[in-house]
Simulated assay, not measured.
Amino acid sequence: MIKCDRTTFLIGAAVGAAAAVFIQKQTSGSKNTPPEKVLKQIKETFKQQGPINGSWIQMKPEDYAHNGFQVSVYKGGISRQGETGSEQFEFAADAKTGTLLNVHSIH
């Protein structure tokens, strides 16, 4: 039987707690989805309405106000041939999830 005094127990508990906090911070700080992957998802959505002529996305996320919250987003654009000619759209997509938050037509 191993004898464990109070000091040894407290040191072990403190080390364990510190390790748990460190691991939680390392795993909970979710990383951004790569911008190329976000653009690919958005292009697939747009392709449901017709072929795409061109697309672009900023590689560095920026802060964006959405429904009263600050969100990190990638901004980008899509162009496609519509019934009346070329159509262009700008979008903002959540940098962590890739979710499309805003799309508007450029006239």
Rank of each mutant, 00 (worst) to 15 (best):
A18Q: 01
Q24C: 11
A20Y: 05
K75F: 07
Y74S: 08
N32K: 04
N102F: 09
S55H: 08
Q49N: 14
N53Y: 05
G54F: 09
I2H: 09
G29H: 12
D94P: 03
F46K: 06
T7R: 13
V71A: 03
G50D: 06
F22W: 11
A13Y: 03
L39Q: 10
G82W: 08
S79K: 10
P61I: 03
N67Q: 14
F46V: 05
G29V: 09
N67T: 02
G54C: 00
S105H: 13
W56T: 10
G82M: 06
G82E: 07
M59E: 15
P61Q: 03
G76H: 05
S55K: 03
G29Y: 09
G76W: 02
D5W: 02
E36A: 15
Q81N: 14
N53T: 15
T99Y: 04
S105P: 00
F9H: 10
R80P: 01
A13P: 00
V21C: 10
N32L: 05
R6T: 14
A14K: 00
S105L: 13
L100G: 09
V71P: 02
Q26M: 11
I2F: 09
A95W: 01
Q48M: 13
Q81I: 08
N32H: 13
G54E: 10
K31V: 09
N53Q: 12
S28T: 11
K31I: 02
G85V: 07
T7E: 14
A20G: 11
A92M: 02
E44P: 01
K60C: 00
M1E: 10
Y64W: 14
S30Y: 10
E90Y: 10
G50S: 05
L10A: 12
K47H: 04
Q49I: 01
Q70E: 09
A65I: 11
K25T: 08
K31N: 07
N67W: 02
N102C: 00
Q58V: 07
T84Y: 12
R80K: 15
I78A: 10
R6D: 13
E62T: 13
I78G: 08
F89M: 04
I11Q: 10
R6F: 10
A19R: 01
S30N: 08
A65Y: 04
M1F: 09
K96C: 00
G50R: 05
D5N: 15
T97H: 06
T97Y: 05
G16Y: 01
I2G: 07
A14P: 00
H107A: 12
G68K: 03
E90Q: 14
I11F: 10
N102S: 15
F91K: 05
M1G: 15
P51H: 06
T97P: 04
N53V: 09
S55C: 05
K75M: 11
L100T: 06
I52M: 06
G29W: 04
I23R: 02
T27Y: 14
S30W: 06
A20K: 03
Q70Y: 00
E62D: 12
Q81A: 13
V103Y: 04
N102W: 07
S28M: 11
